[in-house]
Amino acid sequence: MQTDSISLARPDMQPVPNSRSTGLDLRPMKPRSTFVLSCLFFGFAFLYIPILTMIAWSFNDSRLMSVWTGFSFRWYAALWENEQVIDALLLSLRIAFVSATFATVLGTLAALAMTRMGRFRGRTAFSGMLAAPLVMPEVITGLSLLMLFVSLQVLIGWPAGRGADTIAIAHITFGMAYVAVVVQSRLAAMDRSLEEAAMDLGGRPMAVTLDITLPLIAPAMLSGWLLAFTLSLDDLVIASFVSGPESSTLPMVIYSKVKLGITPDINALAAIIVGIVGTGVAIAGWLMVRTARRQAPARR
């Protein structure tokens, strides 16, 4: 069992049933160098073989990871029976939803402030600080939040212990940074004179923001929301720091299960998560591309 799970992480030792379905079209439209093609192939293989292998094994009928005994959905069904996993999934979804929503509101406000306040002292520093959580090591973010929550509890009695609330707050902090970056880039690309025109036509600043700015950045806000949602769903490190005994998110449950020995239903679960996250990211990207195309200068 243990050796199986190790060999899972090393796809080179496994038969590779799916090496051809990596989305790579090997029929060249025009002559390309074999070097470039093999770079492409190995690059994508490196990225996706582990995940695809795992998804493939989630359909394995056998409990053992080393023998393929047939195609089956039994681990997906088994997953459904596993209350611990289902509870964790629901908790994760709830936290992701709440934190993504708050992160979108706060991140949008931050982006509006950064792009619309004009130049002020220390603007560059602020905009760097807004993006810093993106590159901050999660261990440090998690630890600092944990210390903050603990000292707040000592000082003002809130938050009373750690649980879903503290995880959500922690996720808001980094989700907000992602939303701010996405929305900020949309705002920067937006024609400023649209807002000026609205103001010129009698719109007061608040009305202009509601009538013009928000509708135009809504797609960016939505993709920021999706990004924050998937990131929250993914997070293990920060959540481990700030969670309480009663609140284990899905990644935490999976991680603890793997430590005890992997069962194939975890493969099924992971396959589902890959599906959700992949869809979320794809929709976010599609929204961004579509609005960029729509709001590009019109045909002249």
């Binding site: 004179s193 025109a197 103001m199 010129d200 135009l216």
Partner: peptide, 20 residues
């Protein structure tokens, strides 16, 4: 006087037609 209280209106170089 802010723009929304002036008796002027402007036609912008980019036209600034609201796309939505």
């Amino acid at each position: 006087l802010p723009p929304y209280e002036r008796p002027t209106n402007m036609m912008f170089q980019s036209y600034a037609v609201f796309p939505h």
